[in-house]
Amino acid sequence: MTVHNLYIFDRNGKCLYYNEWNRKKQAGISKEEEYKLMYGMLFSIRSFVSKMSPLDSKEGFQSFQTSRYRLHYFETPSGLKFVMNTDLSVSNARDALQHIYSNLYVENIVKNPTCILGNSLDSDLFSTRLDTFIRALPYYNPRTT
């Protein structure tokens, strides 16, 4: 049970925030490249998923899993995208992502006039609170190796 990493993208595909907790293997490409590829993948999945849907749905793409990890996706109507990778034991992390949006992002970034929207989130308060929140998640618990 653990959380690997978290990305926050703005509506233009810029990575506003990234942090990792128990990520043991890196992708072997630069972080910038990784953000770009991650956003590109999500963008394609998202648009194709809704094209394939037999019925119109509001939610669309929510998560996918491989044999090793699960990617949880949460998008606000304003186009912010929250992406969290966890291991397979975490079945649904959307509540956590929603919480990060409404109680951490909105409270600490949007309502902070010194944070310019669309810039990378460099608020210490936000980072600290986010870290506290992630570590307090019931499924955080890093396995000891």
């Binding site: 509001k58 606000t76 304003s78 912010l80 409404s102 909105v106 949007v110 309502k111």
Partner: peptide, 16 residues
């Protein structure tokens, strides 16, 4: 408005 919308979405949880 551009900031208030985020507060609104978080508060009201209305979808698109």
């Amino acid at each position: 408005g551009v900031r208030l919308i985020e507060d609104f979405l978080a508060r009201s949880s209305v979808g698109r």
